[in-house]
């Protein structure tokens, strides 16, 4: 399922002293099967942009087409759209409210009018998909779970609607490195059933490792859509936008600075290892040895 965004513009509090242009002439397309990353500084318009995708923020000017349906008109089928585009907000665990995990996860599913029996099935599937034991957690209160488990439950609540596109706003914010890795692996597993994923992130390592396309936002404008190798090869551009490169890329850059024959756009650890193996024994090795 693809999402096309054309000339999107959004202004907060227009015609007041608080007026602020949040999005300015943003145009790009998310294609079926993309793992689409969106990076940019705080306040660059990333969150405003993604909240347009399921019509939580309505289009002010421009046009958005989701799965061939124009969502610009005032009256659209919100339930159909929002079950198609599953949105997981930052710190989704703060949206939990029900007295048991099962009731919380089935909330969205019930809201779109799925029959009870099928809902139960979907809930079980969603809870297992996020790596929790259904029998063990279904009757527990979501408030007594650990932080990481809560986040999984919240994620399951969105997955139970069986979305075709998953939109994640900083899914790993506030987690420890192990929790981050677990959530990201989870997202990768989820892509088997929901292949198109959009992710906002501040973590360049994650974006580089998982995304196949990356949009760069700055001051409400889209800087461009790149592949990870293209983007992180442009260290200077990123620096001028106040963004960094992934750790792997910075190692590659340091080695290239030393004279090794290594591509500056390398983003994955295994590629880097291969590149180093190729380079060692070449001319660079002697240079850097001293």
């Amino acid at each position: 399922m693809s999402i096309e965004i054309e000339k999107l513009r959004y202004v907060y509090s227009p015609k007041t002293p608080f007026e602020k242009v949040a999005l300015n002439d943003v145009t790009f397309t998310i294609e079926d099967g993309d793992f689409f990353g969106i990076i940019g500084h705080t306040g660059s318009g990333k969150s405003t942009l993604v909240s347009h995708l399921n019509a939580l923020t309505r289009v002010m000017s421009g046009k958005i087409t989701v799965d061939g349906v124009d969502i610009t008109p005032k009256k659209i089928d919100f339930k159909a759209l929002r079950s198609k585009v599953g949105m997981v907000f930052q710190y989704p665990e703060y949206q939990l409210f029900a007295d048991t995990v099962e009731k919380d996860v089935e909330f969205g599913c019930k809201n779109i009018g799925i029959a009870d029996a099928e809902c139960k099935e979907r809930v079980k599937e969603a809870i297992e998909l996020v790596g929790l034991d259904y029998e063990q957690v279904k009757d527990r209160s979501p408030f007594e779970l650990s932080g990481g488990q809560k986040r999984r439950v919240a994620l399951a609540g969105v997955l139970a609607m069986r979305p075709k596109v998953l939109v994640l706003d900083e899914p790993t914010a506030g987690l420890d490195p192990k929790g981050k890795r677990e959530i990201m692996n989870l997202v990768r597993d989820i892509r088997k059933s929901c292949p198109t994923t959009v992710m906002i992130s501040h973590n360049m390592d994650e974006v580089a490792e998982y995304c196949n396309k990356i949009a760069v936002m700055s001051d409400g404008k889209l800087y461009g859509v790149f592949t990870p190798n293209e983007l992180f090869g442009k260290g200077e551009l990123l620096k001028s936008l106040g963004l960094s490169v992934p750790k792997v890329t910075s190692i590659a850059n340091r080695l290239a600075d030393c004279g090794f024959d290594i591509d500056r756009g390398i983003v994955r650890a295994d590629e880097l290892v291969k590149a180093i193996e190729n380079a060692v024994g070449g001319k660079g090795a002697e240079k850097c040895a001293t």
């Binding site: 929002r82 949105m87 907000f89 703060y94 949206q95 969205g108 809201n111």
Partner: peptide
Amino acid sequence: INAQKARCADFDSGNIFKRAKAMLPVLIP
């Protein structure tokens, strides 16, 4: 509200009791 709307919560229809009940998923968090 946005998070619950993203899960298709409906805050704008039904009678006053229904609406009050619909606010629970917002009030508790």
